[in-house]
Amino acid sequence: MAEEEEQASMGAVKREIRRRIAKHPEPEGHGLNIYPMMDMMTILLVFMVMQFASSSAAAITQSEELRIPYSTSEIEMGEATLIQISRNGIVVDGDTILELRNGLVDPSQKQGGGTGFLITPLFREMGRIRDLQKLIEQRSPSRPFKGAVQIVADERTPFRTLSEVIYTLGQTEFSNLQFVTNKTGSIGGPG
């Protein structure tokens, strides 16, 4: 009888069980849950890849053959047909149209030879792009033909070559020129 009276209560038993359980270490794997962070990062990654892919600036790679000039303009780059004029070639939307020698067009590539202004391969290519863009305009009036081109030219390109390209663009109804430049605070660039 006396032994039964001294027996601990059920509450004390439960307290003891809790105390002993609390002594055990937490099993690994119950730490910080990184899944929400991973979800967020994956969404961020997809967003940035899409933004990068849709930007025409992604197609611009500066090199010794293509050094972009400096300008004080603050206008953000838009979207248009991209023409690159490097020291050794003219590239339209990623396709090399003709090769240049030290930034000059070979006379055989021009209508009228050395004194000519119309660059035949460029005229053909831009005519094709114009026809395509006008076809798109007919099918989808929300995408009108604006005659806009982005010109990424090497800073050493002689004006003669540039004027030949611009003249050819004018002949194919591309008269809205957007020169891509590096941003700078002072005229002529940083140095």
Binding site: S55, S73, M77, L177, T181
Partner: peptide, 24 residues
């Protein structure tokens, strides 16, 4: 994480470009 850092750097490089408008 590395890809995000790489893309962030490229995006900031894009911000260095501007355009100068002209017409014929």
């Amino acid at each position: 994480v590395n890809l995000i850092m790489f893309l962030l750097m490229i995006t900031s490089a894009i911000a260095f470009y501007s355009q100068l408008e002209a017409s014929l």
